[in-house]
């Protein structure tokens, strides 16, 4: 083999080796479930899994960006609920659909941007800033709706839940688009480059002329915006916007991101990995349901899987060095 080929191969492995590992985990899990349950490997069940995974996996894209910068966003679930109720109330007051959708996305973006400003200008640790936002956004959603869900929407809006593109559910198509764009942004754009640079070494990035504050704020804004997008899909699916929606989503999103190989230390990670991580979580839930495992035991299994996945990842990384 010519040296060029070897270099290329090393390059491919160093970039995608980690995802291949996670992917083989997903495949192995699927094979086990296929063997255990005849209902697992059917088109309708696989589409069902994909649909189940959409909400968390979209939120997890924002989380991946944030974690690559070396931060964390605990507010994504609450921001989702807040965006959802604002958009739902706009719809019920007869605001045209595009404007109502924009209001939901806008609320998400604004909450994210506030997170970003608290972290960059206010110099708060991301954990604290977004922990505060988690409570503030949730409380605002509850106050705004007086604790009641807002239900019943037009058929046009419900398309997000019922519509199909080439026989694939609309929400799955949207998820795929989000991942495609996010992958492109991280790998090919200046924003992506700076996201990795800030997480890899914030001081060096600053000294190299990266506008660290602006880009960090933008990244938290993106995370908020994607929570808003997830709110649209969830509200359409439930035909109801609930102020208590999205509870614990931050944990699922963090788990999907970390299982997907993104380092909590920042500077490393891919959305492709996060997608596989989110699918592992969804397949696991689906499989445990098919097998009739109680929801109590499900929690134990899922928690253990997260821990074991990260343990394996860390062991592999140590050996790689």
């Amino acid at each position: 083999m010519r040296p060029g080929r070897i270099a290329l191969r090393q390059n491919f492995l160093s970039h995608y080796g980690r995802q291949l590992g996670t992917l083989s985990g997903l495949v192995a899990l699927s094979l086990v479930l296929w063997a255990l349950s005849p209902h697992f490997l059917t088109v309708s069940n696989l589409l069902n899994i994909a649909e189940q995974a959409t909400i968390i996996s979209i939120v997890a894209v924002g989380m991946t960006f944030v974690i690559i910068t070396g931060g964390i966003d605990l507010s994504v679930g609450s921001v989702l609920a807040f965006s959802g109720v604002v958009m739902a109330s706009a719809l019920q007051r007869g605001v045209p659909l595009p404007l109502a959708l924009a209001s939901g996305l806008g609320v998400g973006l604004a909450c994210g941007a506030v997170n970003g400003l608290l972290i960059t200008v206010g110099r708060l640790p991301p954990f604290i800033a977004t922990l505060g936002m988690m409570s503030v956004a949730r409380g605002t959603a509850l106050m705004f709706t007086e604790g009641r869900p807002i239900s019943g929407f037009s058929e046009n809006f419900r398309w997000f839940a019922t519509g199909e593109v080439l026989r694939v559910p609309a929400s799955v198509v949207i998820m795929i688009c989000v991942y495609a764009v996010a992958h492109f942004v991280l790998r090919r754009t200046k924003l992506g480059r700076y996201t990795y640079a800030i997480g890899g070494n914030e001081e060096a990035a600053l000294l190299s002329g990266v506008g660290v504050r602006a880009y960090k704020t933008l990244v938290y804004g993106i995370a908020g915006l994607l929570s808003g997008l997830a709110a649209i899909l969830l509200t359409a699916r439930l035909n109801s916007a609930q102020p208590i929606a999205g509870m614990m989503y931050e944990l699922d999103a963090i788990a999907a991101t970390v299982i997907g190989g993104t380092s909590l230390l920042g500077g490393e990670g891919t959305v492709a990995g996060t997608l596989v991580g989110a699918l592992i979580m969804a397949v696991l839930r689906n499989g445990l349901n098919l097998l009739g495992v109680s929801s109590f035991i499900q929690q134990i299994v899922i928690g253990s899987v997260i821990i074991v996945a990260v343990l394996i990842d860390m062991a592999l990384k140590r050996r790689g060095k």
Binding site: Y196, N201, A204, A205, G267, E268
Partner: peptide, 13 residues
């Protein structure tokens, strides 16, 4: 290492 380079990034980056 602390201020000049972003260690997890490539030579090109």
């Amino acid at each position: 290492k602390g201020q000049g380079l972003v260690l997890p990034l490539s030579v090109r980056e």
